[in-house]
């Protein structure tokens, strides 16, 4: 019982901090807008994909991207906690390490879901035919994507001693995962090596599943929905296990 209370308080802290930081919220709102309007419009008219509205095509990809970046950034906040000492307060409390991990994980995941959901209204702005059922179907998929990503962020944070490594994560995790997920271009027309690498990226399955529920007829699925979900669930379980182990080792 007291463990649950502890998890709850860690969750509440993450969400409060996320919602309080106004610049981050403004950024969360505006960045996808820039991608959609400028990048999306430019690509649509210069390198369009036949038979597909490019903005409609990248929309699920941008949701994924926003979630990916938020997951990494908020996960890394563990390093802040360590730097400013609050981590110590958590670590010496009677609550167990797996519970600390769970509390952080659920908290950051909530932030990431908020970030993802913020973007939906833009779909209507740029004329994507999005309906209520699509959103309802998209949410569980987003949640599956979120859990795994947040775990990755927390794992890195538990291994890193300072903020200096954050640039490395940006370059070697965020960008490759984003570019290799098929978020910006269809993977059906790329060279084989790129396809192989992308298929090794769990985000590819998340993007594919989101497009399947949000684009309807105009999207030709890369994989069957069952496979997408199975890969995402497997990814979540694996990352959760590694994350729990990583947190248990923090001193």
């Amino acid at each position: 019982m007291s463990e649950i209370r502890g998890i709850y308080t860690l969750w509440l802290r993450e969400v409060k901090k996320f919602l309080r930081e106004k610049p981050r919220l403004i950024n969360a709102f505006c960045q996808p807008l820039i991608w959609l309007f400028i990048f999306g419009t430019g690509m649509r008219f210069s390198a369009g994909i036949p038979g597909i509205n490019y903005q409609e095509f990248i929309f699920p990809g941008l949701i994924t991207q926003a979630m990916l970046f938020t997951a990494m950034f908020m996960g890394i906040s563990v390093i802040w906690d360590r730097e400013f000492g609050f981590m110590k307060e958590i670590l010496v409390s009677p609550i167990s390490r797996p519970s600390i991990f769970l509390g952080k994980m659920i908290g950051v995941s909530t932030d990431v879901m908020i970030q993802g959901i913020i973007i939906f209204p833009f779909a209507l702005l740029i004329g994507i035919p999005l309906n209520f059922f699509m959103v309802i179907k998209a949410l569980p998929i987003m949640l599956l994507v979120t859990f795994g990503l947040v775990c990755i962020g927390l794992i890195f944070a538990s291994l890193m001693k300072s903020f200096e490594g954050f640039g490395l994560i940006q370059t070697f995790i965020n960008l490759p995962m984003f570019f290799l997920s098929g978020a910006l271009f269809p993977l059906s027309q790329v060279p084989e090596w790129l396809q192989v690498v992308s298929y090794a990226n769990p985000l590819t399955y998340g993007v594919d599943a989101l497009r399947t529920v949000m684009m309807g007829e105009s999207w030709v699925q890369l994989f069957p929905m069952e496979l997408d979900l199975a890969v995402l669930i497997g990814f979540d379980i694996l990352m959760f296990a590694i994350g729990t182990a990583a947190f248990s080792r923090i001193e």
Binding site: K16, R20, K88, V92, P94
Partner: peptide
Amino acid sequence: KSIGIVFQDPSVDTDMTARENLQMHADLYG
């Protein structure tokens, strides 16, 4: 649960209020 600790280095969450910091502690310690 039997001990209270005041560390040499600060260990409060400065982005939270005093009451929130205490509230978190109360929750963490059951």
